[in-house]
Each structure stands twice: as structure tokens, then as C-alpha cells.
Amino acid sequence: LSEQDFVSVFGITRGQFAALPGWKQLQMKKEKGLF
């Protein structure tokens, strides 16, 4: 994903996403169907 695509999918930047705890990252990926 490009940075723009990432933001459009998750609503946050890669940096903000990386700062989230692992379980939260997994939850967001599952919600978006990316896992």
C-alpha cells in the first residue's frame, strides 16, 4: 500500500499505526479484511 492508500484504508498514518499495540494493529487489519 502507498502512504495515501494506507491512510484512506486505516484513517491514520503508518507512523501512528506502528505506534499502536500489536493486538490493536491485528484488530484493525481484520476489520479491514487485510489479514
Rank of each mutant, 00 (worst) to 15 (best):
T13G: 05
R14H: 07
G11S: 05
Q25A: 02
E31V: 05
S8E: 14
G15S: 15
M28T: 00
A19Y: 04
G11Q: 03
L1S: 10
G22C: 04
L26P: 00
L26S: 14
G11F: 15
Q16R: 07
P21V: 02
S8R: 13
F10Q: 02
Q16M: 07
V9S: 03
K29S: 13
K30I: 07
R14T: 08
Q25G: 02
F35E: 14
F10D: 06
V7A: 10
T13L: 01
L26R: 12
Q16G: 05
L34H: 14
K30G: 09
S2P: 02
L26G: 10
Q25V: 02
V9K: 12
F6S: 03
F6Q: 05
F10A: 05
S8Y: 00
G15Y: 02
P21G: 06
L34M: 13
F10V: 06
A18G: 11
F10E: 07
P21A: 04
L34P: 13
V9G: 07
K32Q: 10
V9T: 10
A19R: 11
E31G: 07
R14D: 04
L34T: 15
Q25W: 00
I12F: 14
L20G: 04
V7H: 14
T13M: 05
G15M: 13
S8M: 13
G33R: 08
F35N: 03
F10N: 08
T13N: 07
A18M: 07
Q4K: 13
K32M: 14
A19S: 12
K32W: 05
W23N: 06
S2H: 04
F6P: 03
S2W: 06
S2R: 07
E31S: 04
Q4T: 08
D5V: 02
I12R: 01
K29D: 05
K29M: 09
F17K: 03
F35I: 15
K30P: 04
F17I: 02
K29Q: 13
S2Q: 04
S8G: 12
Q4C: 00
F6R: 03
F17T: 03
Q4R: 11
A19V: 09
Q27D: 07
I12T: 02
R14N: 02
F17L: 03
S8P: 03
K30C: 06
F35A: 06
S2E: 11
P21F: 01
V9R: 09
G33T: 06
K24C: 06
F6L: 04
M28L: 03
L20F: 00
E31I: 04
A18E: 15
S2V: 06
G11H: 15
W23D: 13
G11R: 03
P21Q: 07
G33K: 06
K24N: 04
L26D: 13
F35L: 15
F35W: 10
A18R: 09
D5L: 08
P21R: 02
G11C: 03
G22R: 11
L20V: 01
Q4E: 13
R14P: 10
E3L: 06
G11E: 01
I12Y: 06
E31D: 13
L34S: 15
T13I: 03
V9E: 10
P21Y: 01
T13R: 03
F17P: 01
Q25P: 00
S2C: 09
K29W: 12
W23E: 14
L26E: 15
L20P: 01
V9A: 08
F35M: 15
I12S: 01
G15L: 08
A18W: 05
V9D: 04
E3V: 06
F35R: 14
F6E: 00
L34G: 15
G11V: 02
A19D: 12
R14Q: 12
I12W: 00
Q4W: 07
G22T: 13
V7M: 07
F35S: 15
F17E: 06
A19L: 10
S8Q: 10
G15T: 12
A18P: 04
F35Q: 12
G33D: 15
P21I: 02
G22D: 11
T13A: 05
R14V: 07
K30W: 06
L20E: 05
M28V: 00
V7W: 06
K30D: 15
Q27L: 07
L1K: 07
Q16W: 01
L26C: 02
E3I: 09
K24M: 11
V9Y: 10
Q16C: 04
T13Q: 00
K30S: 11
L1M: 09
L26W: 10
I12E: 02
V9M: 09
W23H: 11
T13P: 08
K24R: 09
L20K: 01
E3C: 04
Q16I: 05
E3F: 12
F35C: 15
Q25L: 03
L20Q: 05
K29R: 12
E31Y: 01
Q27I: 14
Q4S: 13
Q16Y: 07
K29L: 07
V9W: 01
G15P: 04
F35P: 14
G22W: 04
K32T: 09
K29C: 12
L1R: 10
Q16D: 05
K29F: 13
K32C: 07
M28W: 01
S2K: 10
F6I: 09
L1V: 09
K29N: 11
R14A: 10
P21K: 04
F6H: 00
E31P: 01
E3Y: 02
W23A: 10
F10H: 00
S8K: 15
D5H: 15
V7Q: 13
P21E: 08
A18L: 12
K32Y: 07
G33V: 02
K32G: 10
M28H: 02
G22A: 13
A18H: 05
M28R: 00
G33N: 05
K24H: 02
F6A: 00
R14L: 06
F6Y: 08
E31L: 04
G22N: 08
Q4A: 12
W23I: 07
L34K: 13
L34A: 14
S8D: 11
Q27M: 07
D5G: 09
W23L: 08
Q16L: 05
F17G: 05
F10K: 06
I12P: 01
K30F: 05
W23P: 09
D5T: 07
K24F: 05
D5E: 12
F10W: 07
K29H: 11
G33E: 12
Q4G: 13
S2A: 03
W23C: 08
E3P: 07
A19K: 09
Q25S: 01
A18Y: 12
L26I: 09
K24L: 09
R14F: 10
D5M: 06
W23Y: 08
F17C: 04
K30T: 08
Q25E: 02
A19C: 08
G33C: 15
Q16E: 12
K24A: 08
M28K: 01
F10G: 07
K24T: 04
S2D: 15
L20T: 04
S8F: 03
G22Y: 11
G33P: 15
F17A: 05
R14K: 15
Q25R: 09
L1G: 12
G15D: 13
L20M: 08
K24W: 01
K29G: 07
A19W: 01
F35V: 15
G11L: 00
L26T: 12
